[in-house]
Amino acid sequence: ELSQDQQTLLTYVLDAYNKHRIPSDISKKLLQEQYSREENFLLLTEMATSHVQVLVEFTKNIPAGFQTLDHEDQIALLKGSAVEAMFLRSAQSFTKKLPHGHTEMLEERIRKSGISEEFIVPMFNFYKSIRELQMMQEEHALLTAITILSPDRPYIRDQQAVEQLQEAMLEVLRKVCKLKHPQEPQHFARLLGRLTELRTLHHHHAEMLESWRMSDHKFNPLLCEIWDVQ
């Protein structure tokens, strides 16, 4: 069973995850904007920017002590996890079948935005693998917090403090998996396997940015900072 503290932690993380999401006016644009490659690229960068803002707000609300870390480490954790948290959140959009055909529109726009096929394939394989896990909202929220609190990101100074925060989240996730998927003892291990997949996507993403830069696509200052693009 979850202890009282763990139940409180889970409630906080779930509330923070549900409260902070892409504003509907941006996702509505998926249906309205033109269909040109340029328009798709701009729309995707607008969604990515919103993902970063949502990520920061979610992270500030993680109760287990993210705010106790020093600011440099908080920034290093956000920079190190932003791409992975974005893919995880996007995967959920493809799982939940957004209303009014948003999902199909989003897929179309991603496929027609200048991203080369070699990155499209692993991206949609990842979305499919997340869909197959039929994750509950609690699992998405915890897995996102676990992704953010990865002690092995570049430039983390107090790795031990981050590791303790991540351990607490992993223990709650392990119990939630046992409670919610009693018939699937492997479910927790499968979720952790997705974290490994996210690292690979993170690597692909850096190469994607390079190819976009070559075709002279510009990113706004927040994306340049979070993605380390000059």
Binding site: V56, N61, L78, E225
Partner: peptide
């Protein structure tokens, strides 16, 4: 060095 936008977002009061 450019002021960090990320730091600004982090230091802003929650849910701003």
């Amino acid at each position: 060095e450019e002021p960090s936008l990320l730091k600004k977002l982090l230091l802003a009061p929650p849910n701003s």
